[in-house]
Design a binder for these strands. Structure first.
Lengths: 138, 138
DNA sequence: TGTAATTGCTCTAGTGACTAGAGGTTCAAG
DNA sequence: CTTGAACCTCTAGTCACTAGAGCAATTACA
């Protein structure tokens, strides 16, 4: 049995974040002390690891909530888990595609100016003012 | 002189978003009618295009604010504009790197399960529960 | 055992970039 | 001159936290 501060140290999740997760229904402490302080055990430590990993992979609190429900009921089919992971993967791929297009554009934008000129001649500003100058669309 | 609805149609920026930008100090209408309705001209149309383009490239409202200030003072050096663009580019590249790592991980995660098994055997859940199974770190 | 420092508690509000809705007013067309 | 669409302001909600106030409990050390 350990405190929220100890749990925070062991998982690398900040104390207020742990309390926020509790509020969202993701982890509840096993017990409280007489003085109302949270006391956690090993299952909570693992659960928070699960949550942290999910967040690092970009899953929403809602998605993690569903995954926890599945995790707690190992007899159900894992179709839902796969669906969540697939949808997250699609999301990530879409973001990568969009960001890659932006990278191209920004590279062109940033390269056009050496920072020495005056703003009136600046290509960064010109490119932003006139969308026609863009190579790719976005 | 045209209304906010007309400005919205011409730029593709939603009406409440235009009002939000005004609140943030990015665009103010030239005048108002006697009945207090906003009336815009060509300069605002261009300014909103500038803002929209900036947002599409991922610049923050703050960054766009600075770029507008430079745009309005063409006699200043464009070092600041270049700096903003460079920093945005670095941001985008960092995000791409992170998302690419996530993509690898998620692909492995999603492929490991065909959705037919029961949750107790599900690799998606196993991988989330045990970080050790991850190939890359994140 | 006393006390001081640290850690904990709850509650509210702020972040960024919007979006949604209430409740009321003005404008343009017929 | 009336109707209906578009406009106005203001407040609150989104997501995943983060910050702070004001107070209580725990722990370390003398």
């Amino acid at each position: 049995m350990f405190s929220i501060g100890e749990l925070s140290k062991r998982t690398g999740v900040k104390v207020p974040t742990i309390r926020y997760y509790e509020q969202m229904g993701l982890i509840a402490p096993l017990e409280r002390t007489e003085g109302n302080q949270r006391r956690y055990g090993k299952p909570e430590l693992e659960q928070l690891g699960f949550i942290k990993h999910g967040r690092e992979l970009g899953f929403s609190i809602d998605a993690i909530s569903s995954l926890i429900a599945l995790h707690d009921h190992p007899d159900r089919t894992c179709a839902e888990a796969t669906e969540i992971a697939q949808s997250q993967l699609a999301d990530v791929r879409a973001k990568i595609a969009k960001l890659t297009a932006l990278e191209t554009e920004l590279t062109r934008l940033a390269k056009a100016c050496d920072g020495d000129g005056i703003a009136g001649d600046c290509n960064v500003l010109a490119a932003l003012a006139d969308h026609q100058l863009c190579a790719a669309d976005h």
